[in-house]
Amino acid sequence: MKIKITIEEIRKYLDIETPEFPKYVAPLINLANQYAQGTRPRVVGQMSELIQEFEGKTLKEWEEWYLKKKPDAIENATEKILQKLEELRNAMNKIDQHTVEQWVRDLVIVKTFTRLRFQEAILKKGAEIKRTNYRLAKPDEESKGIDGYIGLFQYL
């Protein structure tokens, strides 16, 4: 029997409150943290090692133990993330319709064209080296992650 348990269920069973955040706030903080690297081991400690050292049983015990071991970690991580959020806020203020249109055009037109031509160039080069033929993938093959074939078919 396969049993799945969600993080929400774990929190409920362990009587741990789930914080509520306004829409988009948690993903934005997460994004800022990825850039800021605020929760990396050099800032908050190597969590996998710390949890092994911890001998308590409860969340409260863990919090007290961790904060004694790493008294500045939460504040340092928070500051790093807040700084990055401020940088993101400043960047957001620079985004207008023209900027978004440029980004969409680059993605849809330029990157699509470059990616497809890049794939074809690689397939051509591979076929040239192997002295055989090639073809780009068909749409149903692309949906399976296939870019093309070298020397695996005959032209009809």
Score class of each variant (00 low, 15 high):
Q83I: 14
A77R: 02
L107K: 09
A121H: 10
K69L: 02
T58D: 11
T78H: 04
S143T: 12
Q154E: 15
N76F: 04
L136H: 00
I5F: 09
E101I: 09
W65M: 12
N90E: 07
A91K: 07
E101D: 14
T99L: 09
E128G: 05
K124N: 11
F21M: 07
A121V: 10
P22M: 08
F113Y: 14
G38H: 01
A127T: 09
E55L: 07
W65L: 13
D96W: 06
Y134H: 11
G148F: 04
A91E: 08
V43F: 00
K94W: 00
I81M: 00
D72K: 14
G148Y: 02
K57N: 14
Y24T: 12
G56C: 10
G145W: 12
E55V: 05
F118H: 15
A73V: 14
M92G: 04
K2V: 07
Q102N: 06
K144V: 07
L116N: 15
D106F: 11
L123W: 00
A73C: 14
R115P: 07
V104N: 01
E63S: 15
I150S: 01
L28I: 11
G126I: 03
P19W: 00
F153C: 01
E141S: 04
I10L: 03
T6V: 06
F118Q: 15
K4M: 07
W103D: 12
G38D: 02
I81A: 05
A73W: 08
L88R: 04
R11T: 03
T99E: 08
K84M: 12
E64M: 13
I129V: 08
L14Q: 08
Q52M: 05
A73T: 11
A91Q: 06
G45M: 00
P27T: 01
Q52L: 04
P22E: 04
F21H: 07
K23R: 13
S143R: 11
Q102V: 03
E55D: 11
Y66F: 05
A26Q: 10
F21V: 06
T6P: 06
I95Y: 01
R115M: 14
R40W: 15
K70T: 05
V108W: 10
I81G: 02
E128R: 14
Q119C: 05
T58M: 13
Y66M: 08
Y66R: 08
L116S: 13
M92N: 06
G151V: 06
T39M: 02
W103M: 13
Q46V: 09
R42H: 14
L67A: 10
K70L: 04
V104H: 06
Q154W: 10
Q52A: 03
I81Y: 00
K70F: 04
V25G: 10
Q34Y: 11
N133C: 10
Q37I: 11
I3V: 09
I7R: 09
E101P: 00
D106W: 10
